[in-house]
Design a protein around this nucleic acid. Structure first.
Length: 340
DNA sequence: AAGGCGACCAACCGCCGTCCC
DNA sequence: GGGGACGGCGGTTGGTCGCCT
């Protein structure tokens, strides 16, 4: 508390990351695994603070990140989860494994906020406050509040189930079984699938593309390149083509970004696998990057409720397994105590 | 053609929670 | 138990781009 910002150190570089820095960071993490960010600047020689390194990794370089356009399903998910959890972007992002919290936050602020404002001009106050309306009328009576909460819960649940049922097949939402958080991922047993290569290669390809272009527009160009690629089955060859063939071969890229040999404590910690990856087998990085995010959400979010209850409630088919009374109890017992 | 303006997004800032000594 | 170190998170900022006039 009151600790001076880590970036105040003299000589620390700020601003956009260069491709060179990206490669250094990626190489280091490949070798040592993510975590121990404090040591990253010293060990790599990067003139960046540890926070900056971590952010760069989690928001940009980490394999498995999907960039570019949000799908309708993702959009719906964000809207509903935002309604449920408020601006807890990390928690929301944990339900959209391929998106970073920063991405979601940006998308919300730039797109969805306006969209919702347009659609519901009167509700914009509630947006961003978790359960809409709760903070609009702090002085409502407990009885009123309970009924309102009940209604809100019901509405949100319905909406979420609706959204989920729309795209069940292509959903990247964790399914029921994964949400049960059965702690099935055994420590050390996490396998990095080949698709991790793909995504890793994509990331490096992206930065190499920016590098090769050697233009001040690196950031935007990278972003564009990624947007294009994000909707494709990204291939090593395409990456290589984009990066040019006189620099790093696809094999080298793969080698550079291969995390198969990573076995740091951080990575083998294997937190409960809520995000058992369903499409891209990216679980290891998601887990690494957002350990306990959902737990954090459950803890900090509205209900302070046991997550399993929340998740059941949210994602059980039909949403009937968990009694509404249970939710209400939880909410009233834990969340709302402060209101009264 | 050029200036204004809004959109977008990467990165920074500051606070908080947890861990460890 | 106290305090510092560290990681994580959410809010905000600043740079760049594209569209419009």
């Amino acid at each position: 508390m009151g600790r001076p910002p880590c970036c105040d150190k003299i000589g620390m570089k700020k601003g956009p990351w260069t491709p060179e820095e990206d490669i250094i960071l990626v190489s280091y993490i490949q070798e040592h695994g993510p975590g121990n960010w404090r040591a990253v600047p010293t060990n790599t020689g990067l003139l960046r603070c540890s926070k900056s390194c971590r952010l760069r990794w989690t928001n940009y370089l980490r394999p498995g990140i999907k960039r570019g356009n949000f799908t309708d399903h993702e959009e719906k998910m964000i809207i509903h989860l935002q309604a449920l959890l408020g601006n807890r972007w990390a928690a929301i992002a944990s339900y959209l494994p391929q998106r970073t919290d920063n991405d979601i936050k940006n998308y919300w602020n730039t797109h969805l906020k306006k969209k919702l404002k347009k659609l519901q001009p009167g509700l914009d106050e509630g947006v961003g406050n978790g359960f809409p309306g709760l903070q609009q009328q702090p002085s409502i009576s407990k009885g009123q509040w309970e009924r309102r909460l009940q209604t809100d819960i019901h509405t949100a649940r319905q909406a979420l189930c609706e959204a989920l049922s729309l795209e069940n097949k292509s959903s990247d939402l964790p399914n029921n079984s994964s949400l049960k958080r059965s702690s099935s991922s055994s420590p050390g047993g996490v396998q990095v699938q080949s698709s991790s290569y793909v995504w890793s290669t994509e990331n490096v390809s992206r930065l190499l593309q920016g590098w090769m272009r050697n233009s001040p527009k690196t950031s935007r160009s990278n972003s564009d390149a990624t947007q294009n690629s994000s909707n494709l089955e990204y291939s090593v060859s395409s990456s290589a083509a984009g990066a040019g063939n006189d620099t790093i071969s696809p094999e080298a890229l793969e080698s550079l970004l291969s995390f198969e040999t990573c076995s740091t404590p951080e990575m083998s910690r294997s937190p409960p696998s809520s995000l058992e990856d369903n499409e891209n087998n990216l679980g290891i990085f998601q887990e690494e990057s957002k350990p306990g995010a959902v737990e954090a959400a459950a803890g900090a979010a509205a209900a302070q409720a046991p997550l399993s209850v929340l998740e059941k409630w949210l994602f059980e088919e039909g949403g009937n397994q968990v009694q509404e009374e249970d939710m209400l109890d939880i909410s009233l017992d834990d969340e709302t105590a402060e209101f009264f």
